[in-house]
Design a protein around this nucleic acid. Sequence first.
DNA 1: CTCCCCATTTGGTCCTACCATTCTACATTT
DNA 2: AAATGTAGAATGGTAGGACCAAATGGGGAG
Lengths: 273, 273
Amino acid sequence: MSASQLPAKSNAEAAPIAQFQRIKSSRAFDEIAAQIRTELSSGRLTVGNRLPSERALSEQFGVSRNTLREALRSLEHAGLIRLQKGARGGAFISQHSGEAIATGLMDMYHVGTIQPAQLTEARIWLESVVVREACRRATAADIEMLNRNIDEAQEARRRGDFAGRAERHIEFHRMLARLTDNPIMVIVMNGVLDVLTHFVQRIGEYDNSFVLPSRRRFMEYFAAGDAEAAVAEMESCLKRLQRSYMSRIQASEGVSATKAAPRSRRSPPAAQR
Amino acid sequence: MSASQLPAKSNAEAAPIAQFQRIKSSRAFDEIAAQIRTELSSGRLTVGNRLPSERALSEQFGVSRNTLREALRSLEHAGLIRLQKGARGGAFISQHSGEAIATGLMDMYHVGTIQPAQLTEARIWLESVVVREACRRATAADIEMLNRNIDEAQEARRRGDFAGRAERHIEFHRMLARLTDNPIMVIVMNGVLDVLTHFVQRIGEYDNSFVLPSRRRFMEYFAAGDAEAAVAEMESCLKRLQRSYMSRIQASEGVSATKAAPRSRRSPPAAQR
DNA sequence: CTCCCCATTTGGTCCTACCATTCTACATTT
DNA sequence: AAATGTAGAATGGTAGGACCAAATGGGGAG
């Protein structure tokens, strides 16, 4: 096909982007999104590039502006592009913060695909990996940062600020995840912690007086580079937390929709006729 | 926050720190999607329910059908709803297979947020968790299923069917993930394996003759319930695979920009053994 | 030179119309 | 009466035009 066209226009006014093809299948916007994804994975589009305007793109693809916008909506939701209004605005390839993954986990929790017990279970498993690798990489500055977080949590506790204390505790785990220096662990752990935060806020206060002493012991092992001891300390703390959660959820789940059935088959009992 | 670094315009009163909240998107379809999500998390909408038609919904929300469709597009991409044409069609609350998360990981890989080395690294970490838990739960039927998979891979190898063999090998890991019986592990592992499959297809064939013998040893430990030995066997196999991948990627990507150097901590005198 | 206003660009929304698909209900045939 | 075929309605998908609001840059006023 027309491979070596090489326009090489030194214009560069809107976008030095490859020529898009006409779409064909059902759901044109799916194909459009797929084509743009292809451009991305091939490297012809990279972070920071600006796509042509909606009007220009719709003409290139040979579709209406409505259809093109639905394609852009899909890409924007995925975090691949960022839309900006105004004269020099448009669709910019964005850095993909992984927000879509966190949203996906949250959605799965909301529709009941993820049960609270499974959430805390996976969290414990992931955390053990995180702690082990974080311990392997942590610098003195990192350790100081973690200790500072514990101090802040203790201060919040002294003030009776339950929300602030919980926030510090969660932030502690986010820090550890970042220390792995692996975006997959960071993103997944962030998502799991997001859901967990939501979950904790729903069930209200709980007994976590044992967390701070555990943190101190944890940091001892952690600073000494004893990864396995740190993992064990963290795991025992999290398992105790998990028991707190589960006992509370049994108490609070008498009224709210429990979504008990993990698999709800077709339900609509009746329709208007 | 860097609020204290303002260039000191004629603003006499340096802004007292205040926790501002983001303005509500100002985009109608975002609010519509948020409202529907709220209905979902509150339990008023559950899997299998059918939303009103686009025309009816657009009237309820007081927006045009275009705007409503963009909201639905966002929800559909998230996997929360499934659109169906025809009479009695509409938007049905769907089971959320986690496809959005796999897509998100793939996108992150494509834009370079996830590097191949980080992909295989995280995969090894996750796999160790998966193997440990799968070993704890596997039934005789599960073990038979895994053995059958190995047989099929061996058969594919005999035929010289590289693609088929690779597919079986990947499927083996998906099976293990499912055995954890935890949707988070299943979804995340599926996503990571999707990206890995894509990555492997890109670099082409590689030396994996050691995989099948390792699988046999693995199954010995696994069937005996020796989780730690199984984990160690799998880890050593995966690390060897990783070296194969990395050597191949250096060969095929000699010139291509390999992004920025991996952030290396470890400047201060930290814990090192 | 600085500052402010305005034309231009561009995403966000609305409207109307038409098409393709899918199912229901009725009519036709056997 | 049962099986079959067909018309119609409901619904998502697409088209094309129009206008609004925000962001930008340039030109005019001071």
